[in-house]
Simulated assay, not measured.
Amino acid sequence: MLATLTDPSQALQWVSTHIKPYFPATNITGIEVGNEVFTGGDTTLASYLVPAMVSIHSALVRLGLDRLITVSTPSSLAVLQDSFPPSAGRFRAELSRIMPQLLQFLAATKAPFWINAYPYFAYKDDPNNISLDYALFDPNPGVVDPYTNLHYDNMLYAQVDAVIFAMARMGYGGIEVRVSETGWPSGGDPNETGATVDNAAIYNGNLLRRQMRNEGTPLRPGMRLEVYLFALFNEDMKPGPTSERNYGLLQPDGTMVYNVGLSGLT
Rank of each mutant, 00 (worst) to 15 (best):
F105E: 09
F38N: 02
L95H: 05
P85I: 08
L95P: 09
M99Y: 07
M53I: 00
G64K: 06
M99R: 10
T44D: 00
F38E: 01
A108N: 10
I69V: 10
T29Q: 13
S76W: 08
G34E: 02
L106C: 06
L77Q: 13
M99W: 05
R62H: 07
V61T: 10
S75W: 05
L95D: 03
V71H: 02
K110L: 14
I56E: 07
G34H: 04
P100E: 12
L103S: 11
F105D: 08
V71P: 06
T29E: 04
F84P: 05
S72C: 05
R62I: 09
T43N: 07
V54L: 10
G41Y: 03
Q101C: 11
D42L: 04
S87P: 06
L77V: 03
Q101E: 15
P85Q: 11
Y48I: 03
E32F: 12
G89S: 10
G89T: 04
E94D: 15
E94K: 14
G40M: 05
S55M: 02
I69C: 08
I98L: 15
S55W: 09
I56P: 06
A107C: 13
L65W: 12
G89C: 07
G41Q: 03
D42M: 01
L102F: 12
A107W: 11
A93Q: 14
T70M: 01
A107G: 09
S96F: 10
I98Y: 13
L68I: 00
S72G: 00
T73N: 13
L103C: 10
P85D: 05
V61A: 09
T109H: 14
Y48P: 13
L63D: 02
S75N: 12
D42Y: 06
L80S: 02
A93Y: 10
T39K: 06
F91Q: 12
V61D: 09
E36V: 01
A88N: 13
T70R: 13
T43K: 13
Q101Y: 13
K110E: 13
T44I: 11
P100H: 11
F105A: 05
T43C: 00
Y48N: 13
L102C: 11
P85Y: 06
T43I: 04
G30D: 05
V50I: 14
A93V: 14
T73P: 03
T70Q: 06
D66N: 15
Q101W: 11
M99F: 05
A78Q: 12
S72D: 00
M53D: 00
Q101P: 08
P85G: 04
V37S: 03
D82F: 06
I31H: 02
R90V: 08
T43A: 08
K110I: 11
T73Q: 05
